[in-house]
């Protein structure tokens, strides 16, 4: 028994594991915060798009030895502007625009990485590698995530009004355009951070699943945020911890944990869950049945 406990405590004896767990938790938290807005607006794929689009930026930064965050950020902004531009100047639907822009940039990133295999590891970018993250990269991630969290703490209500009812938001003097710009900036920043923990391919899960899960559990936005952030933080922390035993693939474990929680909510949620819906239907049917029975009894009497 105590041998097992000792075994389980092993990750906590390594500094790099502490670092990985805390950095993952922070990134998970802030991505979950953003996920609440993203999934409500039906922009979930935007997260995926950004995650892939920043790959050339990261690759470029490693090639020339610049901070990865700067390169990623630059590529992210470029992608967002590119999408806005194509959307405004063509009749293409949003999904086509996003697909077009992000695959192009992702392809460019892969090309750059394959041309410079020594300075860039494709695997690290695509799958993430938080257990082996360099100290200066970890610092960048922490700064990005913490700063985003602080900004969100100040503007979350204004963002909520803007996303719920933009006309009204403008009517009470909110600067909706600026707010949306800030939101997308934060989203790109956090995608960059998440790239380090779960990799480009799984970024989308971090910015969708926690919000989607919380959405099944509540009808109030403030609770949605709390639930989503709690899910994001805990799964990321535990995911990093478990990856010590499972030997790598932190992103895969984090996302699997989030999906398990989502499935539980999907079935068991008190109001919007599958089982709750069945139960309500059954109750309604039983009541109708009982009523018709009592009516026929009354008729007979």
């Amino acid at each position: 028994m105590s041998a097992l406990l000792a075994e389980l405590a092993v990750p906590f004896t390594y500094d790099y594991m502490w670092k990985a767990m805390w950095v993952s938790a922070l990134v998970g938290a802030v991505c979950a915060f953003l996920s609440c807005y993203l999934m409500l607006k039906g922009w979930s794929l935007m997260g995926d798009a950004l995650g892939h689009s920043i790959v050339p930026g990261v690759a470029g930064a490693y090639i020339i030895g610049a901070p990865f965050a700067a390169g990623a950020f630059f590529a992210g902004i470029l992608a967002a502007l590119g999408m806005a531009f194509v959307k405004q100047h063509s009749r293409l639907r949003e999904d086509a625009t996003i697909g077009l822009v992000f695959t192009t940039l992702f392809a460019l990133g892969l090309l750059m990485a394959s041309l410079h295999p020594t300075s860039v590891s494709i695997q690290t970018i695509v799958l993430g590698n938080i257990l082996a993250i360099a100290d200066e990269d970890a610092l960048q991630v922490v700064i990005i995530a913490a700063a985003s969290f602080v900004v969100l703490a100040f503007i979350w209500k204004d963002l909520m009004v803007t996303f719920f009812d933009e006309t009204y938001a403008r009517g009470i003097g909110l600067k909706t355009r600026t707010l949306k710009l800030v939101f997308f900036t934060l989203l790109s920043a956090c995608t960059v951070a998440a790239l380090q923990t779960v990799g480009a391919c799984l970024v989308i899960a971090l910015v969708v699943t926690p919000g989607a899960t919380a959405y099944l559990l509540t009808d109030r936005f403030n609770r949605l945020l709390v639930i989503a952030v709690a899910i994001g933080t805990v799964t990321s922390f535990v995911g990093a911890y478990l990856s010590f035993f499972l030997n790598g693939a932190t992103g895969g474990i984090i996302v699997t944990l989030q999906t398990l929680i989502f499935l539980a909510a999907f079935y068991l949620a008190p109001k919007h869950g599958v089982l709750a819906a069945r139960r309500k239907a059954r109750v309604a049917r039983d009541r109708a049945l009982a009523e018709s029975k009592s009516a026929s009894v009354a008729e007979a009497a």
Partner: peptide, 27 residues
């Protein structure tokens, strides 16, 4: 204060009636 002819909002948004009215107080 302005009430438009038709509200173009997301009806599935997780806000309660009282939350919506509270938005009127933000200013």
């Amino acid at each position: 204060a302005y009430v438009p002819q038709s509200e173009d909002v997301d009806w599935n948004f997780p806000v309660l009636v009282e939350d919506v009215v509270m938005m009127g107080r933000y200013g």
